[in-house]
């Protein structure tokens, strides 16, 4: 990471710490914002957050590794999260998964070379009546068919 980039990140974390408070309760909101803006929370960012909140870096790391929506390595600009839990599973999420994989030429758990898309499975996202369902970043898509899923992916390209 370039020094200038680090300085920028430090300033950003400091302003988030001012916004949410320099206490432990501010940890998740800060992590969520860093995640949203950068697509991941780097090792450096975790140490800086620990510094501002006066906690230990390993405590931040413990939290980041606990929550499924926080990531430690850069991910695609669009994170496609396909629900893998029972209702969507029974509605044939497999077919959706295969179609998207073929379209992007990557497997679930991977990121495209142009870092545009990352494919992930998530557990029940509460769209059981409209499965199969997926999130692209925060946007919800339901009643997917392989064809429809691919069209949605294309719209983000």
């Amino acid at each position: 990471m370039l020094v200038s980039e680090k300085h920028g990140l430090t300033a950003e974390i400091e302003s988030l710490a001012e916004k949410y408070g320099r206490t432990r309760e501010a940890l998740l909101p800060i992590l969520q914002e860093i995640q949203m803006r950068h697509g991941y929370i780097s090792e450096f960012a975790q140490q800086e957050i620990a510094n501002f909140l006066d906690i230990h870096p390993v405590e931040v790391y413990g939290v980041v590794t606990f929550y499924a929506f926080l990531s430690r390595k850069p991910e695609g600009r669009y994170i496609v999260k396909l629900c893998q839990t029972i209702a969507c599973d029974l509605a044939d999420k497999e077919a959706i998964a295969r179609a998207i994989e073929r379209e992007l030429n990557i497997k679930f758990g991977e990121t495209t070379q142009d870092t545009k898309f990352t494919l992930q499975y998530i557990n029940c996202m509460g769209m059981c009546d409209q499965g199969p369902a997926m999130l692209v970043n925060d946007d919800v898509y339901t009643h997917l068919t392989p064809h429809k899923a691919v069209e949605i992916i294309k719209s983000y390209k």
Binding site: T23, L28, V63, N123, C124
Partner: peptide
């Protein structure tokens, strides 16, 4: 409003509180 970050267990009330306090759920 506080957002969760993808952890089913945080639906358990004390895990939820832990999460709100910035801890592992």
């Amino acid at each position: 409003i506080r957002l969760g970050s993808g952890a089913y267990v945080c639906g358990e009330e004390t895990a939820l509180i832990e999460s709100l306090e910035g801890h592992r759920g």
